[in-house]
């Protein structure tokens, strides 16, 4: 898809390395899915999120999560205005198209949970009134998995609402060379222009839903989900919401590759990003491998459907 390649190239003007992460992020946007960017500090999580937001038209808000950010700081507040002698609404930063929740695990669990309704139902409730959020509404959250002082791990219910979790990893030596050269004199983010309008994005999202998923690919998705539920390394496996996410992400991957149908490789590509943050691992699992390794192992163990010619 030309517009998607254009979007990727635009992001790459700023963000160097990890093309897989950029691809997954775009696929997540195609499904209106919320993304959790995870890695150690300085790997470009916020930069990637900001590059995507700047490449797309629409509103962008950012919340720097700290322990004293309260739910009302995110959703909004109804306060009493003595001048008008009445309650007035002030909508929070959540009322936007792309919301960057930076260092989300530094906010209190209560504040994190205030995003639940917005993320799942794309609406917020202030006192008695329910307000629809603009479309598309995408939350891009970042967190540093190493830091634990003064952080609050995201509850499982919250994690399940993230469509994908994308680790960024360190760049290669050559990529790092490009980074230090590119950012030496100026900040490329400042000159980044919009390359996709909201209308175009909505059209692409509609097109993603039309991608054909054959029965063997559907079976493959279901087998992968079932495998996470029966794995000895998983305490809890994938939810039906995750199966649906896996299907949607595979469709987005197919669209990204310019196909009108899904193939098992699409499912394999998106599976670790969809599954790794949703599974709860057992003690044996934690001591044997990490979440990513477990999802990759499951991917290895489940038979891939092959075309049988007659």
């Amino acid at each position: 898809m030309e517009s998607l390649q254009k979007l990727k190239k635009n992001i790459q003007k700023v963000f160097v390395g990890n093309e897989t992460a950029i691809e997954l992020l775009i696929e997540s946007v195609l499904c209106s899915g919320h993304v959790l960017l995870e890695d150690v500090p300085g790997t470009g999580k916020t930069l990637l999120a900001k590059s995507l937001a700047k490449s797309m038209a629409g509103q962008f808000s950012r919340i720097q999560c700290t322990p004293d950010v309260l739910p009302s700081d995110i959703t909004g507040i109804e306060y009493f205005n003595p001048k008008s002698n009445d309650f007035e609404k002030r909508l929070g930063p959540v009322y936007t198209n792309i919301l960057l929740a930076d260092e989300i695990n530094r906010a209190l669990p209560r504040t994190q949970s205030s995003l639940l309704e917005a993320m799942e139902e794309r609406q917020i409730t202030l006192d008695r009134e329910t307000i629809k959020l603009p479309s598309p509404f995408i939350v891009i959250a970042t967190q540093n998995p190493l830091e634990s002082q003064g952080t609050f791990p995201l509850p499982d219910a919250q994690l399940d609402r993230f469509f994908m979790s994308i680790p960024l990893g360190y760049p290669s030596q050559e990529e790092e060379r490009t980074i230090i050269r590119r950012f030496r004199e100026h900040q490329p983010l400042d000159t980044l222009s919009v390359c996709i309008t909201l209308e175009e994005l909505i059209d692409l999202q509609v097109e993603t839903k039309r991608i054909l998923v054959s029965e063997p690919v559907e079976d493959y998705i279901l087998q992968l989900t079932a495998a996470t539920r029966s794995s000895k390394y998983c305490e809890t496996g994938l939810s039906p919401r995750a199966s649906l996410a896996l299907l949607k992400a595979s469709q987005a991957k197919a669209l990204y590759m310019g196909r009108s149908y899904c193939i098992p490789e699409d499912v394999q590509f998106v599976f670790p990003a969809i599954a790794s943050h949703r599974i709860t691992i057992t003690m044996e699992g934690a001591l044997t491998a990490g979440r990513r390794e477990i999802t990759e192992q499951i991917l290895h163990e489940v038979d891939v459907p092959v075309e049988i010619s007659r």
Partner: peptide
């Protein structure tokens, strides 16, 4: 130092 945490992944990090 390993900061205050809980769960299987914290155990793995400690070990």
């Amino acid at each position: 130092t390993l900061n205050l945490r809980e769960g299987n992944e914290h155990l793995a990090a400690s070990l």
